[in-house]
C-alpha cells in the first residue's frame, strides 16, 4: 500500500513537470505569435510545433508506462467547498481559479467532457439519429471513396507529375514565330489583308486575292490629291492599284495606272 502511494506520487510529480514544459512551450509560442508575427519565419513556427508535439508524445508515453498507476481508478472527492476567495489556490492556479466554490467545482472535477463539448456531441448524435441508416451508409461509402481516392493521389504524386510534364514536353510549341510576324504585319500595315477597292461595283469573285495581295501593294498603294486644294471640283479619290488587267473594275471613274508608273496621277 505504502509503495503504491509512493509510486503514484512520483508519477504525478513527473506528470506535473511534463505538463509544465508543455505549458511553457505553448506560452512562448503564443507570445511569439502575438508579438513577433512580423518577423516570425515559417521554419521557426514549424520548430515550435515540433517541440509541442514531442512534449505531448512524452506525456503520452509516460501515461502508457507500466510503472505509472492507472489514474482512472483514482477518485478525487472535494472535501470542502467555500464561497470565499482562497489565495493559496489562486497562486497555485496562476490566478485562474481564485475560489473553490460549489459553482465551479463540478466543472473542474468533472470526468465527462466540457459542457460545450457535451452539447455539441448531443447535437451530433441527434443529427445521426435523424438520418436513416441507409443514408448514413451511403455517406460513409462516399466518404470512404473520397478518402481512398485522395490517398491514392497523395501516394503517387510523382508518377502523375512526371506524366504531366512529359505530356507538356511532347506537346508542340504553343506559338509560331512566323505567325507572330504575319499578325504583327497585318495589324501594322494590313499585310495579307484585303485591300480596299474604290467604291462602286466590285469585280466579282477575286479568287486568290489574299496571296496575291500579301507582300504586294502596301500602304503606298493609295494616292490621293486631297488636302492640297488643287482639285476644287471633281478631284475626289483616285485609287491607284497595281496593274492586274481583267481584275480591275472598269466602270468607275478612277485613274488606274500600274504601280510602276507615277505615284501621283495629278501633276503638280
Amino acid at each position: 500500500m505504502q509503495r503504491e502511494e509512493k509510486q503514484l506520487e512520483a508519477s504525478v510529480e513527473s506528470l506535473i513537470s511534463r505538463v509544465a514544459y508543455v505549458k511553457n512551450a505553448l506560452h512562448s509560442f503564443i507570445y511569439k505569435l502575438e508579438n513577433e508575427y512580423d518577423r516570425l519565419t515559417w521554419p521557426s513556427v514549424l520548430d515550435n510545433f515540433a517541440l509541442l508535439s514531442g512534449q505531448l508524445n512524452t506525456i503520452n508515453k509516460l501515461l502508457k508506462n507500466e510503472k505509472t498507476p492507472s489514474y482512472r481508478s483514482q477518485v478525487i472527492i472535494p472535501l470542502l467547498l467555500s464561497p470565499d476567495r482562497d489565495d493559496d489556490l489562486a497562486k497555485l492556479t496562476e490566478q485562474r481559479v481564485p475560489v473553490f466554490s460549489h459553482e465551479i467545482v463540478p466543472d473542474y472535477l468533472r470526468t465527462k467532457p466540457d459542457p460545450e463539448v457535451e452539447e455539441q456531441e448531443k447535437q451530433l448524435s441527434a443529427e445521426a439519429a435523424r438520418i436513416g441508416p441507409e443514408v448514413a451508409q451511403k455517406q460513409i461509402q462516399t466518404l470512404n471513396k473520397l478518402c481512398s481516392g485522395l490517398l491514392e493521389k497523395l501516394n503517387n504524386p510523382r508518377d502523375e507529375r512526371e506524366a504531366e510534364s512529359s505530356a507538356l514536353r511532347q506537346n508542340k510549341p504553343s506559338f509560331n514565330p512566323a505567325d507572330t510576324n504575319a499578325l504583327v504585319g497585318a495589324v501594322a500595315f494590313g499585310k495579307g489583308l484585303s485591300k480596299c477597292r474604290p467604291p462602286g461595283p466590285v469585280a466579282p469573285g477575286l479568287p486568290g486575292q489574299g496571296p496575291l495581295m500579301s507582300g504586294g501593294p502596301t500602304l503606298q498603294q493609295v494616292t490621293i490629291g486631297g488636302g492640297s486644294g488643287q482639285q476644287p471640283s471633281m478631284g475626289g479619290p483616285v485609287s491607284q492599284q497595281q496593274g492586274q488587267p481583267g481584275k480591275m473594275p472598269s466602270s468607275i471613274k478612277t485613274n488606274i495606272k500600274s504601280a510602276s508608273g507615277s505615284m501621283h496621277p495629278y501633276n503638280r
Binding site: D179, T180, L183, A186, L193, R197
Partner: peptide, 20 residues
Amino acid sequence: SRILVPGNTENIERLSLSYL
C-alpha cells in the same frame, strides 16, 4: 480575319492559325 467582300463583315476568312 480578312474581309472577303469589302464592307461585308459577315463574309470573313481567318488570317492564320494563331491568335495575336
